[in-house]
């Protein structure tokens, strides 16, 4: 009897845990949506800020974030996929492989602001790219590299060995097999990693703080070497700079909403794709 009561209380406690967790997270979503929604309008999405950040839209920040994402994927995808291909298709299990694995794992744990420092010292200063979309994209691509690698690895290992054997038996070489059989089959899985990477790159602020972002540009970025506005940085700047905190907060809510919708959409798609990809190979 006593055991029954303890069990009841214990299960109630667990239920409370998840209820509180969901409550917190629902609160965040609620506030961002309810206060961000009134700020949204066609003008907000398509126009530049006016009247020292108190009116107008955030289009340059949206465009800036878009460029940063494109640049980041451009660098991270080839490197990440190539690393995964090496680890899954070429590597003999050995000393080098364990070093590479170790560096990927540790790279994944490096704080984002440290990537920012690295980007500042190497891309901005040493390479002379300055504070620019290029520097920011390069920095972000190192940040998302471990994620792309592990998603690609998962996708490549899920490809059944019989497919590779069939291809080799038909006389295809190792590289032909990889290019024509393994990569196309693993593609949806790799895509999942890329999409998750997009979500991460879109929301990260610390790495672009000193490598790419600026509070205000009059024009849209014209080349990879120009600095840009970006959604997450814009939220930060609106909250900490400027002289009209109340009007700026409204715009910040709008930006937070756009960012959150973007990230939710992107991760939702990725989770859905991954589920389908996993099912395709487990049945």
């Amino acid at each position: 009897m006593k055991n029954k009561i303890i069990e009841k209380i214990g299960f109630l406690f667990l239920f409370l845990c998840i209820a509180i967790t969901l409550f917190f997270l629902a609160t965040i979503v609620y506030f961002v949506v309810s206060r961000g929604l009134p700020a949204l309008s066609w003008e907000f999405l398509t126009e530049a800020p006016r009247k020292s950040m108190t009116a107008g839209g955030v289009a340059p920040a949206i465009i800036g974030t878009f460029y940063l994402i494109v640049g980041t994927i451009l660098f991270a995808l080839p490197l990440g996929l190539a690393t995964a291909i090496y680890l899954c298709e070429y590597s003999p299990r050995g000393y080098f492989v364990s070093i590479i694995r170790m560096s990927i794992n540790n790279l994944a744990g490096v704080p984002s602001v440290v990537f920012g420092l690295f980007g500042l010292a190497v891309f901005v200063k040493y390479c002379g790219f300055g504070v620019s979309i290029l520097s920011g994209s390069l920095t972000l691509s190192i940040l998302i590299l471990p994620g792309i690698i592990s998603a690609s690895q998962e996708a490549l290992t899920a490809v059944p060995f019989s497919l590779r054997e069939a291809s080799l038996a038909l006389g295809a070489t190792h590289w032909q097999t990889i290019k024509r059989v393994v990569i196309p089959t693993a593609f949806p899985g790799v895509l999942t990693g890329v999409i998750l990477g997009i979500g991460r790159a879109a929301g990260e602020t610390a790495p672009i703080l000193f490598t790419a972002a600026t509070f205000f540009t009059r024009d849209y970025p014209s080349s990879p070497l120009s600095e840009c506005m970006a959604l997450p940085y814009h939220i930060f700047a609106l909250m900490t700079e400027g002289s009209h905190p109340d009007q700026q907060a409204v715009i910040a809510y709008g930006c937070a909403l756009i960012l959150m919708v973007l990230v939710f959409m992107v991760s939702g798609i990725a989770i859905y794709l991954r589920k389908r990809f996993r099912q395709a190979f487990t049945h």
Binding site: T83, Y86, L117, A121, L145, P146, I149, W175
Partner: peptide, 25 residues
């Protein structure tokens, strides 16, 4: 095979790069 090997080492390269930059600066 050679290209992939080189590219696979970029993670190590970046990790070392981070350490070197932090130490140097």
């Amino acid at each position: 095979r050679w290209i992939f090997t080189v590219m696979a080492f970029t993670s190590l390269f970046f990790l070392l790069g981070i350490i070197i930059v932090l130490l140097r600066e």
